[in-house]
């Protein structure tokens, strides 16, 4: 644990959990406890297993050993799925058939609805609210295929919010989104956190989220290699810089094939933790 003020009850907990596909565990013996009100970033290089950890939490990848608990209930028996909002890493929400922002966001409400029940006024109100929160209120009837990449990401967030979740699990919400849009995203998330939402964010770049983070967990080679309060992680005292840089450096700052999503140029410039002091501390070690 971090020694920081613990804000509330357990939301997501892994106990010596291994997650993998078939006989190939990607993540091994991970223990992690996220409490209500925390804003946790899972950081690590590509292939480190940070996405696999959340896929294990969400039931999208099999947990082969250990245990995953959601709100203190073993995940396999956890039925109140609406309490968890999932924002997958997708660059587009548009399918083969045209659909509107409202139609896509409404599918996030289903976790709260019975099988045959038509949507109630309350359902429609929450969906409209979720669309407003992400700033797409005036576009609610627009086909999602007409939205920009950043706007489509916000549709995915609204979809997750439509179930009125207590925790939001986001996979790379800022990858491929320009600086202006990630700042807007962070402002939106800050409002939600103020309202009591817990956040678990998988990211390769914590800089855009720095204003709201309370904790940074570093993952490398399928294991948790560091866990610090955000203020420490962002400072020169951080041990994460060593861990994270130690594993990342070989590929870090390599330009991508097209300089597009992931914005390697920017990651190279600001570093993982977005703090020039960190690089100072690294050269000092």
């Amino acid at each position: 644990m971090t020694g920081r003020d613990l804000v509330g009850g357990p939301v997501v907990e892994l106990r010596h959990a291994s997650v993998g596909y078939g006989d190939r565990p990607v993540v091994q013996d991970v223990s992690l406890l996220v409490r209500r009100g925390e804003v946790v970033a899972l950081v690590g290089p590509n292939g480190s297993g940070k996405t696999t950890i959340v896929r294990g939490v969400l039931g999208l990848a099999p947990v082969t050993a250990g245990e995953v608990l959601l709100f203190d209930v073993p995940a396999v028996r956890f039925k109140e799925r609406w309490r968890i909002g999932y924002v997958p890493q997708r660059h587009t929400v548009a399918g083969a058939v045209p659909s509107t922002v409202e139609e896509v966001v409404a599918s996030g409400r289903l976790a709260r609805r019975r099988w045959w029940a038509p949507s109630t006024a309350q359902d429609r109100r929450v969906v409209a609210q979720a669309i407003d929160v992400v700033g797409l209120g005036d576009r609610h009837r627009a086909p999602v295929s007409t939205l920009s990449g950043g706007q489509q990401r916000r549709v995915l967030i609204a979809r997750a919010l439509a179930s009125e979740p207590e925790v939001l699990v986001m996979d790379e919400p800022t990858a491929g989104v320009d600086a202006q849009n990630s700042e807007a995203l962070t402002r939106t998330l800050a409002r939600l956190v103020d309202d009591g939402l817990t956040l678990v964010v998988v990211t390769h770049d914590v800089a855009p989220l720095a204003p709201i983070l309370t904790r940074v967990v570093a993952v490398a080679d399928g294991r948790v290699v560091g866990d610090e309060p955000a203020d420490v992680a962002m400072s020169a005292r951080s041990a994460l810089g060593v861990h994270v840089y130690g594993h990342v450096d070989p590929h870090h700052g390599e330009p991508g094939p097209d300089g597009g999503p992931g914005d390697p140029a920017r990651s190279a410039g600001s570093g993982w933790l977005g703090d020039p002091g960190l690089r100072g501390s690294r050269s000092a070690t």
Binding site: L58, G59, R81, I84, G108
Partner: peptide, 11 residues
């Protein structure tokens, strides 16, 4: 529309 999301939300 999104099979993985549907699975994650318990469908």
């Amino acid at each position: 529309n999104d099979e993985e999301y549907a699975r994650a939300s318990g469908m």
